[in-house]
């Protein structure tokens, strides 16, 4: 359960988040919509305890985030960053093992138990065969899955996914989104920032729309996703179409003839 009340944050003089309030309950997939610079990443960084200088209140299960230790927070919430190339090449298994660091002592290395957890998570995501491969030699989709496995190995109930589909091909996008949905339905609280309104329609249980650091609207995709919101968020015309597979959003105004 995440409660945000009057959350504001500024980098120096420029405000990024102003007076955000919303609540995210346990489980389910919440999509965070907003154009570039709307404050999605800053909101994530606040939730991860990386920006303790926020004002207002930001609580996870009743605990104020800026008062939590790094270790304590890592047990509650975890981050799946956009896959960029790390400086050094680690095997996929080592990457996943890094997720278990919060569970072991300061001076210890991951042991047999941690290795078993890591392998389990790789298997759960269907990428156990990649365990020995170098992370830098994996495709974008495979990297994203490894990072998801790492987050699962961290064993925190809340997963923050930062544009997981950025620079993925069509197939990998739906693979990653499918995994996210399965996780959300198996008890994890998944919060995902995205630039794909269609992903919101197809996969999300809830939507939060941000604009200029303010909350535009929140609710189920059925309630809030419409032409007006798309126009406010992206400044373009869209058309929503109902199909047997659910609602579809297309750019452009429908031709009426």
């Amino acid at each position: 359960m995440i409660e945000v009340r009057e959350l504001s944050f500024a980098y120096g003089q420029s405000p990024v988040l102003s007076g955000l309030s919303f609540t995210i309950g346990e489980g389910g997939l919440t999509a965070l919509l907003g154009c570039n610079g709307a404050g999605k990443t800053t909101l994530f960084r606040c939730m991860l305890g990386l920006l303790p200088g926020y004002t207002g209140s930001l609580r996870i299960n009743g605990r104020e985030i800026r008062r939590c230790s790094v270790r304590e927070l890592a047990r509650q919430i975890t981050w799946i960053p956009q896959s960029q190339s790390p400086t050094f090449n680690y095997s996929a298994l080592d990457m996943v093992l890094m997720g278990t660091t919060g569970q072991t002592g300061l001076f210890s290395s991951p042991g047999v138990r941690q290795r078993r957890t890591a392998m389990e998570k790789l298997e759960q995501l269907g990428i156990a065969h990649l365990a020995g491969r170098g992370f830098l030699h994996l495709s974008g989709g495979e990297r994203q899955l490894v990072l998801i496995a790492r987050a699962l190995a961290q064993q925190a109930p809340i997963l923050l996914m930062d544009e997981p589909c950025a620079s993925l091909d069509f197939g990998n996008q739906s693979r990653v989104m499918e995994q996210a949905r399965q996780l959300a339905h198996s008890g994890y609280t998944v919060i995902m920032s995205t630039h794909h309104p269609q992903h919101v329609l197809s996969y999300a249980d809830r939507v939060i729309a941000l604009s200029d650091g303010r909350l535009l609207t929140g609710g189920t995709p059925g309630e809030v996703m419409n032409e007006a919101l798309m126009r406010t968020l992206y400044g373009i015309d869209t058309t929503f179409v109902d199909s047997p597979m659910g609602r579809i959003v297309l750019p452009g105004r429908a031709q009426t003839d």
């Binding site: 991860l48 990386l50 890592a74 047990r75 400086t87």
Partner: peptide
């Protein structure tokens, strides 16, 4: 080696 943000998020 992953960077500060990632390291902190990992505890």
């Amino acid at each position: 080696t992953l960077g500060d943000d990632e390291a902190r998020a990992l505890g």
